[in-house]
Write a protein that binds this DNA or RNA. Structure first.
Lengths: 190, 190, 190, 190
DNA sequence: ACGTAAGCGAGACGGTACGTCGCGTCTTACC
DNA sequence: GGTAAGACGCGACGTACCGTCTCGCTTACGT
């Protein structure tokens, strides 16, 4: 029963979480690009010099926040059974931070964040696609192209889902996505 | 028989094109977000106050450039036979401005530009999808979701194509895209 | 029966007088320093490039206006009988352009204009003072100092007169001024 | 026993005095109107944004400087015996900042500054004039007119003194001024 | 009276200063 | 040691004037 490294100064924890919360709120309100370090600090009621003691800039703050949040998304290896439960977990996570993702992936978001999100999703498909083996059809596009194609598609669909107030539960969304993906993946519907 | 409206001041034309060119170059070099109006003016050897006489800010310059470029992309209605020649023209256009699109759609690009590009592509598919009529499978996702899915997919594939130095000619790319799309569109492979 | 050089192009005369009038109006309204060439041209409904065809800048316009106006002030040599009628003519002239002088000599005026006005007045006194001959009292200040002293005094009194809506007619003002001056000039009241 | 309020940040004091010094220098060199905030900052080796952290504009800087300097001029009430020691102190003060006053009161100066200086001097005479009681001569000009007359006269004499490299010591100047003033004030020479 | 040279309007352009804002660094004092 | 307070240098922003420069139109003048 440890918890060895994590015990940080209470003040530090408080400062960091307050700043993160402020970033999210402001990003939702005006878009990531329009948020300034000043904004964040005022909202968080934290002195600006304190911000710089913890983060390089707002991108760093976003990164660290995304990293913490990302841990929640990636299932522990043992319980990862691939395409089926993974996507549902991801959708539920996205739903939990719906406001944040809606902004970050949309026209006021950050392309780097979007790219990482897409890469994250692409990795989820890489294993699946590798199972298909060599393509039978000589016109089959390269693996990487298919990965980018489908990962972007999924991100686009998720963004649509978020921008339309999540019509349907994550479960419904998962079914829809699976149907579209299986077609694009060339899987024979069973 | 004169050219009625278009006869603009030569200096104006020169200034505007020079600024556009500078924007493109700099965007390719350091990403759109990092480009400043100062940069553009220095590169274009145009006084900064002259910039503001023509454009509101760099976004405006980008918009106007994209609008001009967009005219080239949209085929004349007469020769538009939908999915088949349209996409190839689009791919050739993208190839012509490969550097620019690679940056603008990527992690150093602009999410608003990317979104517009995606919407442009979505419109190209709307007609096709509307032909399919009511879905037979009750699990078929909503039309708009499928549009966003496929449009994002195509943008993702194009970005991959650009970031990997356009492996294959636009024709080859068009064939690959058509294959992936036809699957996602639910067309029965013939 | 001449008028040899003066006959200028009608358009030129119209432009120049309109610009002068505009300068005066605007100076009265917001003070000379706050008036811009743009203001003047808009008020005069004259194109800005036309302004520069006639004047170097607003100071030049002021100078030329003051020069024209100054001719009216300076009596022809023949009718100049010095201290007595001169001052009254000056006061009447100032009264005629009261708004203008009130602004130009005051806190929103122009120090150079004020200085020239003061020098103009000083010249009116120079002859008078020179008549006094060598001072009997060894403590008598230098002539130039006395000139500057009295010229500034008169300007100050005139400014007070203008800023208080000219209490008393120019004739009354002239009497007051003569009384104050005669004391300062060391003249024995007759 | 500390110095309660005055303990200001050393850097602030340094910045402010450096900026003031730069303003004076530049005003002497090219006249107040021609001095720009940029000039001041370059001369002071202070960043321009730092300037705006302390002053609204160059007029504000001048005002604050004049206010500080003005404290030195106004004698402590106890030692103020009116016309006699006051003027000498004032003249000595002007002599100390001769370059500055010569420019500010002259043709390249600032009319507002000049006006304030004149009002300052007028106040010094108000008490004296009020002692005279009702004028015996019905032609005596109004009190305010006489005040403006004499205050302007003194300013004009001081400016002459400065522009001619202060011929004579302040003591000599004081004697000259007193003689001229006593005449204008209507005092019977004793 | 009328052709023509001028005056003029329109406006692009390069400059320069303005005042504001956000950034990231630093120092000092407090707790 | 973490934080608040805030001065500072830096640099981009968008605006406002300035003075110069074509380029056509129109208009008053002189023959």
């Amino acid at each position: 029963m440890q918890n060895p490294v994590e015990i940080e100064d209470l003040r530090v924890r408080r400062t960091r979480t307050t700043l993160q919360r402020a970033l999210i709120e402001l990003t939702v309100e005006k878009g990531f690009a329009a948020v300034t370090v000043r904004d964040i600090c005022e909202r968080a009621m934290v002195n600006r010099s304190t911000f710089y003691r913890h983060y390089i800039d707002k991108y760093d703050l976003l990164d660290q926040y995304a990293a913490e949040v990302g841990k929640l998304t990636t299932p522990a290896p043992s319980e990862n059974d691939g395409l089926h439960t993974g996507p549902l977990q991801l959708l539920k996570h996205v739903q939990q931070f719906a406001d944040f993702y809606r902004v970050m992936l949309g026209q006021n978001g950050d392309p780097l964040f979007t790219q990482r999100f897409r890469e994250n999703i692409a990795e989820r498909f890489r294993y699946l696609l590798s199972l298909q083996g060599a393509p039978t059809d000589p016109n089959t596009p390269p693996l990487e192209m298919r990965l980018n194609y489908i990962a972007s598609a999924v991100v686009g669909a998720i963004l649509w889902w978020l921008e339309n107030d999540q019509p349907g539960m994550p479960e419904q969304m998962g079914i829809w996505l699976r149907q579209l993906n299986s077609a694009a993946l060339g899987a024979r519907p069973t």
